[in-house]
Design a binder for these strands. Structure first.
Lengths: 122, 122
DNA sequence: CATACAATCAAATGATTATTTAAATGACCA
DNA sequence: TGGTCATTTAAATAATCATTTGATTGTATG
């Protein structure tokens, strides 16, 4: 029934493995990984945090906030947009970015809570 | 008061920029970025999801679930542990991993919700 | 129409990161 | 104590990603 003792490759609990693999077919963990990857850069985390504090910001304001070039900022915003994290609207020459939905504010909040707690435990 | 029109470098709203930069000094966005980076790999996302579905799993079970080598799995688990995402306990020859706290379940849940919604909008 | 400027794009470089392989721990058991 | 097995570590390679630079697009305005 189970492979807890010696088997050809390694020990493993076949039942558990199968059950979880089955559950995993229902969720898109590659997409989730990509979502987190978009948030995994300090500059992009700063952008998302900024958009938690201010509803709308134009590209050059964001560039100034994160202390980077406009080209680099635009690049990062594209990455965030591809994952549905930010949206934008054009107003004349300016392009204003904002958070796409409430999920991002929640993720950032929980993330910040977590690192505060971890820091406290050290 | 504001730099909305031509300035030496670029247009920007100095007041906004300063306000948000000030707010950013209170939070550790580098740590948050590192946290998300740990979740930004498909294999590690699979590990965290697996640990949402099963309280405890040993290394070789996890290796089988994600379909990778034990060495590689161990490497990923180390990455997750460094960010306070998973914890472990030793029982004889086996090492059992579990989620460190409830935050991770929340992050994974919100992440999954988000990618489902984004997918629906395409 | 030409100029100015915000933003984007494309190519190149430098830096990080995932994965593999092989060797090393650390714990049990005969 | 010697051997086996689960896990970890180290070093090397392969792959991915961030940033810079220079050129381009799109929009307003003189």
């Amino acid at each position: 029934m189970q492979g807890k003792d010696t088997c050809d490759i390694y020990c493993y609990d076949e039942e558990k493995v199968n059950r979880i693999q089955q559950l995993m077919t229902n969720v898109d963990l590659l997409k989730v990984a990509k979502l987190f990857k978009a948030l995994s850069d300090e500059n992009r985390a700063k952008i998302v945090y900024s958009l938690c504090e201010d509803d709308e910001l134009c590209v050059c304001d964001i560039a100034n906030i994160i202390g980077s070039t406009v080209a680099n900022t635009s690049h990062h915003l594209r990455t965030l947009h591809k994952q549905g994290i930010v949206k934008y609207r054009r107003e004349g020459k300016l392009v204003f970015y904002s958070l796409d939905d409430e999920h991002m504010r929640q993720l950032m909040l929980i993330g910040l809570e977590h690192v505060e707690e971890v820091k406290a435990n050290v």
